[in-house]
Design a protein around this nucleic acid. Structure first.
Length: 200
DNA sequence: GTCAGGATTACCT
DNA sequence: GGTAATCCTGACT
């Protein structure tokens, strides 16, 4: 699919990613699902972003690549995946925090070692999809690793505060987290599940 | 070499 | 609601 929507405004791109079908294939096993939860990180002026004030380290180097680059970092032993937006002068990106499992659920269960909560968190979905920093950081979307396709359309998108950044001053109040309203495959929230999981 | 901190998760009450 | 587990990264000595 055409990825040019990632080149424009990051907040718009984040919402456009909801519903996209994301998948990986490893050893003949395809795992994938529909994106249900994302967060935008706006680089230079966003205190919660790894690239705040254009901070640049070996770890966040991939944020300074062009749109469509995949940035994977580890924390507490988990891997988290971002899609980079815009251009090399704007280190911005979208953190994928939740997907609705669709394909290869048996493989996800094997990788996760449990039968539920397979993909309702940034570290959980990378584990279910087999995404590790050493193999995927700096690769490009739809280029043989992580791929996205058109998927479903959210009926309503909810904007909320981002998760896990509670010492970042004013940045904690930005409504840069977007979820599919009524979809249960998201982190933290107690969701009232809606018809069709919130899809049109 | 040492040390503090984190865009998390799982399990507890 | 809270907290321990756990480990990588960056900064500093």
């Amino acid at each position: 699919m055409d990825l040019s929507f990632l080149a424009y405004d990051t907040l718009t791109a984040a919402q456009a990613l909801l519903g996209k079908y994301i998948y990986t294939e490893q050893d003949g096993a395809v795992t994938g699902g529909y994106i249900t939860e994302v967060e935008a990180y706006l680089g230079e002026h966003d205190k919660a972003a790894h690239a705040y004030q254009l901070r640049r380290t070996k770890k966040n180097e991939m944020m300074y690549r062009d749109f469509g680059t995949i940035y994977v970092y580890t924390m507490h032993g988990h891997h988290c995946m971002n899609f980079i937006t815009k251009d090399t002068a704007h280190p911005e990106g979208v953190l994928i925090r939740g997907i609705e499992p669709v394909t290869g659920i048996d493989t996800m269960i094997k990788r996760r070692g449990r039968e539920n909560h397979l993909t309702d968190g940034p570290g959980k979905l990378t584990q279910s999809l087999g995404i590790k920093r050493e193999h995927y950081n700096g690769t490009r979307l739809n280029d043989d690793g992580v791929c996205i396709r058109e998927g479903r359309t959210p009926r309503v998108i909810t904007a909320s505060k981002r998760i896990g950044i509670d010492n970042k001053e004013e940045a904690v109040d930005y409504l840069y987290r977007f979820t599919v309203k009524g979809n249960p495959h998201v982190s933290k929230d107690k969701v009232v599940v809606e018809e069709n999981n919130g899809w049109q």
